[in-house]
């Protein structure tokens, strides 16, 4: 076979004898210019660096290390991101009203894989649609994360329900010790204004009116969440939650 007619001959010769590419001086520009003179088309972005032009002996250990670090990093990132989401124990909300979010499909066949993983791992029993709907807030109405060291005022009204309970817990939904020994309020013994709206004060220290006790010893790391559980509520599907109104959460003071 005639080498001159082989269109790849130039490539082959260029690679086989890289030292022919004039390694005069150490200026990288000289290298790549010589590379181009030798007939190679080199785009600006992929212009080879000098060390790539000099044929180096095969380095199996280096290739292996590269491959292993890709595998290791990919596995660690994949498992880490999954663990972060599952350990946070906060199912992706499908509907939200202001700071209040609900996942009505949790625990049903239509649930997303994340909430299935979260619910089965934490052995959590969802509130089924025939029972009621749980709405949880992790932030106040301004969007700031709730803190157990602060006092909050929850004002307004809820969507229609036969009855509801409001409870305070950590951001993961765990119960905390309070001065009153309870961590909830129910709609049964609630003080309401003439127009049917209510004001709940969530604080560590006892408060007049509707008092929702918060943790006696607040741990900032544990966070705070409020959960409304509306029992026997017509708003049990995501669609009918649109236009529904939930109470506002305002921060009063922190200490």
């Amino acid at each position: 076979m005639n080498l001159a007619e082989n269109p790849f001959a130039k490539d082959i010769s260029g690679r086989a004898a890289p030292h022919a590419v004039s390694p005069r001086g150490n200026d990288p520009r000289l290298y790549s210019a010589a590379w181009e003179r030798a007939g190679h088309r080199v785009s600006q972005g992929l212009r080879p660096e000098p060390r790539d032009l000099i044929e180096s002996p095969a380095r199996p250990l280096r290739s292996l290390a590269f491959l292993m670090s890709v595998l290791g990093l990919g596995t660690v990132l994949g498992i880490g991101s999954a663990a972060l989401i599952v350990e946070r124990e906060r199912p992706f909300a499908t509907t939200s009203i202001g700071p209040w979010s609900a996942s009505p499909t949790a625990g049903t066949a239509e649930a997303d894989p994340y909430s299935v993983a979260i619910y089965t791992r934490s052995a959590r029993v969802p509130l089924a649609l025939g029972e009621g709907l749980a709405l949880t807030a992790y932030t106040d109405s301004v969007g700031q994360s709730l803190s157990p060291a602060c006092t909050y005022r929850i004002t307004g009204s809820t969507p229609t329900a036969r009855m509801w309970t409001l409870s305070a817990a950590t951001a993961k939904g765990e119960m905390v010790e309070t001065l009153a020994g309870r961590t909830f309020l129910t709609s049964l013994g609630l003080l309401r204004a003439d127009d049917g709206t209510f004001t709940v004060t969530a604080s560590r220290a006892p408060s007049s009116g509707n008092w929702l006790p918060l943790a006696r010893q607040p741990q900032a790391l544990e966070g705070l969440s409020f959960t409304f559980r509306l029992y026997d509520a017509p708003v049990t599907t995501g669609a009918s939650l649109e236009g529904a109104v939930m109470p506002r959460i305002e921060k009063v003071a922190c200490r």
Binding site: G78, I79, A82, A83, T120
Partner: peptide, 23 residues
């Protein structure tokens, strides 16, 4: 490659949890 691999691992882990959950 790291990104693609981590996405695959992430999805596999999430889907495997319900089967592996001991409690």
């Amino acid at each position: 490659a790291v990104l693609a691999l981590s996405v695959v691992v992430h999805v596999l882990v999430i889907l495997a949890i319900p089967r592996q959950a001991t409690h």
